Computed example of a mutant assay.
Amino acid sequence: MTRICVAGGTGQVGREVVRRAVAGGHAVAAVSRHPPPAGDAGHHDGAEYFRGDVSTGEGLAAALAGAGVVIDCLEARSGKALRNFADGGARLLAAAQDAGVARAVVLSIINSDRSSFGYYRTRAAKEQAYERSGLETIAVRATQFHSLLAGIFAAGSPLGIIPVLKGARFQPISPSDVAAALLETALAAPSGVRHRVRTVGGPEIAEMGELALDWKQASGSRGRPVRLPVPGAMGKYLRAGLNLAPEERHGTETFRVWLAKNADSL
């Protein structure tokens, strides 16, 4: 079995990659700045947890030792972490190359290179760092997570509304289905291509208003759906349908199924 290093192994996608890899009989090294202790809900028995930081390189060599593949599920949402996101990826790749890792897989966002939205540009920059590396690399671009939509809908609760972006359709996907795609990609036979991109979308495409009604029913919210304009780069991205991949439907967990599974936390 392959030894797999999962960077960001405690995030919403990373911890699911770790769980699936351990269940598949693989040796797993999970890297995080704050590894969970044994017995914690985020700790999977059978995996080794390493304290590591891609912003400094600390701990990466130990975590990558003996690994055949690294899966990068690291997250960054704002501030310094977001500004240094691509540099952290390059640092991880350099450590992987020094450790003799053969392949690196990175989680990214669908059509991140076709948007001028700052958050997406950091993802595109990280993909470029992977493309420049000396390893065989694959960027797995996913459509938006179910949890993102749920978060948008919930954000209006204090005002008694459910925000719905005008003209927006979504093809949301579960972190579990994305983790399955990442692991499948990491363990596939060599393609002979040094860098490539794979896109994975959710099983269904729906208008945001329809998804809002599903969330309202599942959450018990009394909010009223309100349609709001989306200006700027994100509005342009959504109106062009760049967040959709109709030909790349993966997994079986629809938004409704995900809502039912997570009803207690909505």
Rank of each mutant, 00 (worst) to 15 (best):
C5Y: 07
C5F: 08
V6F: 06
G8Q: 09
G8V: 11
G8Y: 09
G11H: 13
G11Y: 15
V18K: 04
V28K: 08
A30R: 03
A30S: 12
S32Q: 06
G39Y: 05
D40I: 09
D40K: 13
H44Y: 08
G46S: 07
Y49G: 09
F50I: 05
V54C: 15
G57P: 03
E58W: 07
A76Q: 03
A76D: 03
R77G: 09
S78Q: 13
G79L: 12
G79V: 07
A81K: 10
A81F: 08
A81L: 09
L82H: 02
A95I: 13
G100P: 10
A102H: 04
D113A: 06
Y120Q: 07
R121F: 02
A124D: 12
A124F: 05
K126E: 11
E127I: 01
A129S: 12
Y130V: 03
S133D: 05
L135G: 05
A139K: 00
R141V: 00
Q144T: 06
F145W: 15
F153P: 12
S157Y: 15
I161D: 00
I161C: 02
K166P: 06
G167M: 11
P175V: 02
P175R: 02
S176N: 09
A180Q: 13
L182I: 01
A186R: 00
S191K: 01
H195N: 14
R196I: 02
V197M: 02
P203R: 00
I205D: 01
A206Q: 03
E207P: 04
G220V: 03
R222C: 11
G223S: 12
V230H: 10
G232Q: 08
M234N: 08
G235R: 08
G235E: 14
Y237V: 10
R239I: 07
R249A: 12
S265P: 05
